[in-house]
């Protein structure tokens, strides 16, 4: 009788152990923004990146980021804004949305909690890593080559072939013909007008 009780107790303990192990050890390979959009994540070297371009339409505190479709309004905008390539929201599913510099630099933060816009040092580190691991370029440019919006004139270009993302002070870019990562197409420190370019966003984990 006592032996049966002991076995039952051990069975219970084992069931509990298995249950807690399975619920706590599952690795979280996604991140969700304030709008509820879920993004896959990938590990590149020692960094954890979003594997998809950002689609969020609100800052971290819930404030709305305006969607500017008009070309003149986009070119002259002095606050955070986003747009969809060719003003077609269906593109956001595959390629995310394009944001101006003001949205990136806003203190309300565009990145989900626990994530941030990559710093120039983190981009340099990614660039170096890709040079040694060119086959991994697909991790970044798959679903990433969503083109850009030209600052002066607000026209859209290069979707499907070129990808441009904001870093802390400039852009980093990839082309479908190269596994290399390039930087400096847009540099807000060198060119004040660059703040009106619309580029994609890939966040990196804090």
């Amino acid at each position: 009788m006592k032996k049966k009780k002991t076995i039952r107790l051990h069975r219970l303990l084992i069931a509990l152990l298995l249950f807690t192990h399975c619920t706590t050890s599952k690795q979280d390979n996604t991140v969700t923004d304030i709008d509820g959009y879920e993004y896959r994540t990938i590990t590149i070297g020692k960094q954890i990146w979003m594997a998809e371009n950002l689609r969020v339409t609100r800052y971290r505190n819930g404030d709305t980021i305006p969607n500017i479709t008009d070309t003149t309004a986009w070119s002259t905008c002095t606050s955070g804004a986003y747009c969809n390539y060719n003003n077609d929201a269906s593109h956001s599913t595959g390629y995310g949305r394009l944001y101006n510099w003001h949205a990136i630099n806003d203190s309300r933060k565009i990145a989900p909690a626990g994530w941030h816009i990559p710093t120039d040092e983190e981009i340099a580190s990614l660039e170096a890593w890709l040079e040694n691991n060119p086959a991994a370029a697909g991790k970044i440019n798959t679903n990433g080559l969503g083109g850009y919006r030209f600052g002066s004139g607000g026209t859209y270009h290069t979707m499907g072939f070129n990808g441009y993302w904001w870093s802390a002070s400039r852009s980093f870019e990839m082309y479908d013909w190269s596994p290399r990562l390039f930087t400096g197409f847009v540099d807000v420190q060198r060119n004040k007008e660059a703040v009106t370019y619309g580029l994609a966003v890939r966040c990196i984990k804090d």
Binding site: H21, C22, S25, K26, Q27, N29, R40, I42, T43, A51, P134, A135, A136, A137, G138, K139, N141, T142, D176, W177, S178, P179
Partner: peptide
Amino acid sequence: CNEREMQAPLATAVANNITEQ
């Protein structure tokens, strides 16, 4: 179970490694 958890991200990495040039 642990081993499977460790292998899952690797499998994703291999699938993502295909650079279509």
